[in-house]
């Protein structure tokens, strides 16, 4: 994975891009979980929602292509 990407000449950590992609995925999964009232199954729903974000962020970072 490249550590930095160039945004119009300014170098930004590529993790920023991963974070944005993870956020988009999080909104999608969170919407489905809310629709199914699935968050209520967890002991601490806000913590579970935060954990979901970290899981998605980790997954996106791991799958990020090395170009």
């Amino acid at each position: 994975m490249r550590h930095e990407i160039s945004v119009l000449g300014v170098y930004a950590p590529s993790l920023v891009l991963c974070a944005i992609i993870a956020a988009a995925l999080w909104f999608l999964v969170d919407y489905l979980m809310l629709k199914l009232s699935a968050w209520q199954l967890f002991w601490h729903p806000p913590l579970a929602r935060l954990a979901l974000y970290f899981v998605l962020f980790g997954a996106v970072s791991a799958l990020y292509p090395d170009f």
């Binding site: 945004v7 119009l8 000449g9 300014v10 930004a12 920023v16």
Partner: peptide
Amino acid sequence: AFSYAYWRST
């Protein structure tokens, strides 16, 4: 300018 804008947003 772009660097400042980028930093402020970050």
